[in-house]
């Protein structure tokens, strides 16, 4: 019995100490950001690997999600003769929930895992130590550009996901089940609010992006420099990143839409 309690205690302590380490790590990164702004090329390079390389999967996923949403909305709404409202359902679902959440999950899987693997490999091949010995701060040159780029890329990817999803829904609604084009757009305009829906979705995506890159970069930096350790770190990034997205989404939804 006491042994089990001890195990539990150890777990809790280790979770908190890791959280503390991660926070300190983040703090160190943030301190270096002002100095980084004079080197935008570093950020652009990272925007390419986190943003551009994730774009394709975002576009494909967004299109299908939008189409499926429209189709399911149609099946339900047609019974009430309210199939004109398809666009409201598609757009609201995409903006409030699916846009940021799906983008976050895909981002954790695609960009997050790549970040962890890259940094873990840099660590195990002593590139990070090498930089330190060249009097180059890896926090500023390696970590900070990645964190910043991920933070910027997420809302952009989310906007693309939402827009492609809306267009996918448009394809099904207008060309598939025959809603009038004007009805599709104008009913959405009637119901969708710029601030409560679109901007809240964007705020969510900013939060998700920040948390995912934070986890990804920390896991990479903290990984055990062996092939096994690297694999575990990458897995942890995807699992923790995805769970963080889902948990935070619930929290943010409760804050944003809980009391309209």
């Amino acid at each position: 019995m006491l042994d089990r309690l001890q195990v539990l205690g150890q777990r809790v302590i280790s979770v908190f100490s890791r959280l503390g380490q991660a926070t300190l790590f983040l703090y160190q990164i943030i301190l270096t950001i002002p100095g980084l702004l004079s080197r935008p090329s570093l950020i652009i390079k990272q925007l390419y690997s986190t943003g551009v390389q994730t774009l394709l999967i975002i576009v494909v996923a967004g299109c299908f999600v939008g189409m499926v949403l429209a189709l399911q909305a149609y099946y339900v709404l047609v019974d009430f003769g309210a199939e004109d409202s398809i666009s409201q359902m598609v757009v609201l679902t995409l903006m409030r929930e699916l846009g940021p959440v799906m983008t976050g999950l895909l981002f954790a899987g695609r960009a997050g895992s790549a970040l962890t693997a890259e940094i873990g490999l840099m660590k195990s091949t002593e590139q990070l130590s090498g930089m330190e010995m060249m009097a180059v701060d890896p926090m500023q040159r390696v970590m900070a550009p990645r964190v910043l780029a991920g933070f910027l890329a997420m809302p952009m990817l989310t906007a693309v996901f939402m827009a492609v999803g809306v267009l996918g829904g448009y394809l099904v609604a207008v060309h598939g089940v025959g809603i009038f084009e004007g009805v599709y757009w104008s009913l959405a305009q009637l119901k969708v609010d710029f601030y409560t829906d679109l901007m809240n979705g964007m705020v969510k995506s900013l939060v998700f992006g920040f948390v995912i890159v934070w986890i990804a970069v920390f896991e990479g930096y903290d990984s055990v420099p062996t092939s096994e350790g690297l694999g575990q770190a990458t897995t942890r990034t995807v699992v923790h990143g995805s769970l963080a997205v889902l948990g935070l989404d619930f929290l943010l939804t409760a804050i944003m839409f809980g009391d309209i």
Binding site: V52, A163, A188, L190
Partner: peptide, 30 residues
Amino acid sequence: SRKLEIAVGIFVALSFAAFFMLALKVSNLI
């Protein structure tokens, strides 16, 4: 690096276009 910058430029432009399309076409911003 030129190619890379162009790709990032396209990405940023695309995302802004997406955002404005959402704002103007399917929300009540107007």
